[in-house]
């Protein structure tokens, strides 16, 4: 194991976050705060409690998930796409590092950033609404699992993308809608039966549901199912990454 290389990539990527502090930390925290002001305080006060939880507090897990998903993908995809774009990837490919080490460095750093961001948003939320976390360990498990899985997904996206446009499109046109429609702002009980069934095909629903359960013990689907879907998605990403490295897809000719 080339520990020096893992450490080097990891610290390099973390340093990049510091350099782009505004983009990677400040702006997601700020935009989430705006959601709390609008939905939590202004509109939320006029919405009825959901299973005994105030609306402002109800949306906290969904909002954290929204940021986790989009930021994990943005961070990890940019981290590997940029060297491909500038050509500096030659060094990574010619270095005595294994694929596992490359992954640990890039995905580890992206996931770390997301986890830090998750905590920051949680703390920010605490300023606006009363928070309770019923199952801290489950909450942490979902936080870490989601950050890692979607950083992996971002890494795959970064390798697949051959232009900045594609890098933007996936989070913007796929992940954000899925998150909004996956019950970030509502419980699927509020939907007509047909749309409830449709929503069950949205994988993000399971993540939000499990995460929310760890806060308030209210869930749209069973906890085990949530966990199962999260782990399944992680495995799917791992298989994809394994295939990419095995074939050198869009990395080596």
């Amino acid at each position: 194991m080339n520990y020096y290389a893992v450490r080097t990539i990891y610290l390099f990527e973390m340093a990049r976050a510091w350099r782009t502090l505004f983009q990677s930390i400040v702006s997601p925290v700020l935009s989430t705060s705006l959601y709390f002001v609008v939905f939590g305080a202004a509109i939320g006060s006029r919405i009825a409690e959901i299973e005994g939880v105030s609306y402002g507090a109800f949306i906290v897990p969904g909002l954290i998930m929204l940021s986790l998903l989009t930021q994990s993908i943005a961070n990890a995809s940019f981290g590997i796409y940029f060297p491909k774009f500038t050509g500096t990837i030659y060094e990574l490919l010619s270095a005595p590092v294994s694929y596992v080490e490359i992954l640990l460095g890039y995905v580890g750093a992206a996931a770390t950033k997301s986890i830090i961001l998750g905590f920051l948003i949680l703390a920010t939320a605490g300023l606006f609404v009363p928070l309770q976390i019923a199952h801290v360990y489950w909450m942490l498990l979902f936080l870490v699992l989601t950050s890692v899985t979607f950083s992996l997904f971002g890494f795959i996206l970064g390798i697949w993308a051959d232009g900045f446009e594609k890098l933007q499109i996936v989070p913007l046109l796929i992940i954000t809608p899925l998150t909004f429609l996956g019950g970030s702002f509502y419980s699927i009980d509020m939907l007509p039966p047909f749309w409830q069934t449709v929503t069950l095909f949205n994988p993000v629903l399971y993540l939000i549901s499990g995460f929310r359960w760890s806060f308030y013990e209210i869930a749209d689907v069973h906890l085990g199912v949530s966990l199962g879907v999260a782990v399944m998605f992680l495995c799917a990403c791992l298989v994809a990454v394994w295939w990419i490295f095995k074939t050198g897809y869009r990395l080596k000719s």
């Binding site: 080097t8 340093a15 500038t86 060094e91 990574l92 010619s94 005595p96 590092v97």
Partner: peptide
């Protein structure tokens, strides 16, 4: 092996010191 590529591919936003130190670490040297 050390490789100096043909194209001038560099991390524009990094300092000289940081980028050279990065290479050393990547190749597994303390």
């Amino acid at each position: 092996i050390g490789l100096v590529p043909q194209e001038l591919t560099t991390d524009s936003f990094e300092t000289v010191w940081a980028t050279v130190s990065f290479s050393r670490g990547l190749f597994g040297r303390p």
